[in-house]
Design a protein around this nucleic acid. Structure first.
Length: 144
DNA sequence: GCCAACGTTGGC
DNA sequence: GCCAACGTTGGC
């Protein structure tokens, strides 16, 4: 199983919004690298939910429940082909203690995260070691 | 509000 | 195919 991190601006769509929905299509991604990361996801993969701009912290964990499929909000290209795809997710665990970007940057083991190195990438990978440490820092007794 | 980083577009 | 110009993201 793989781990990921997905960003959203909480004034547009927050973790609380996710908790209030049975399932959410992660639409709106219009970046090829981020899209490729979603296409690499498998059902059952887990992802951190990061609040960008406001909060700048990891607030929870969500689970992938449907593999990449056409983004219902995206137009087709001139040839009529699907370009933008996305996965479906459900909320999984809210972190007792959100982990801020400042804390991540100040933690040597996390300084190489895609979140830090590729700050504009909205869907990126998380390593097993990073995942375990972040879960611990977020106040979870056991990493899911 | 500013700026750095990065992606995309368009002229050549 | 290169590169300048421009737009967008996201941290500060």
């Amino acid at each position: 199983m793989a781990y990921w991190l997905m960003k959203s601006e909480p004034n547009v769509f927050s973790y609380t919004d996710l908790e209030n929905k049975p399932v959410e299509e992660w639409h709106g991604v219009r970046n090829f690298t981020a899209r490729n990361n979603m296409k690499a996801m498998k059902v059952g993969d887990l992802a951190f939910f990061y609040h960008s701009n406001i909060g700048k912290e990891i607030v929870g964990i969500m689970k992938v429940v449907a593999p990449a499929h056409p983004d219902s909000t995206a137009e087709l290209n001139d040839k009529g082909n699907v370009v933008w795809e996305c996965v479906d997710v459900v909320h999984h665990t809210k972190l007792p203690k959100p982990v801020t970007l400042a804390t991540i940057k100040a933690t040597p083991e996390l300084a190489n995260m895609a979140l830090v190195k590729l700050s504009r990438l909205s869907v990126g990978p998380v390593t097993d070691a990073e995942w375990k440490l972040l879960c611990q820092m977020g106040g979870l007794k056991k990493a899911p």
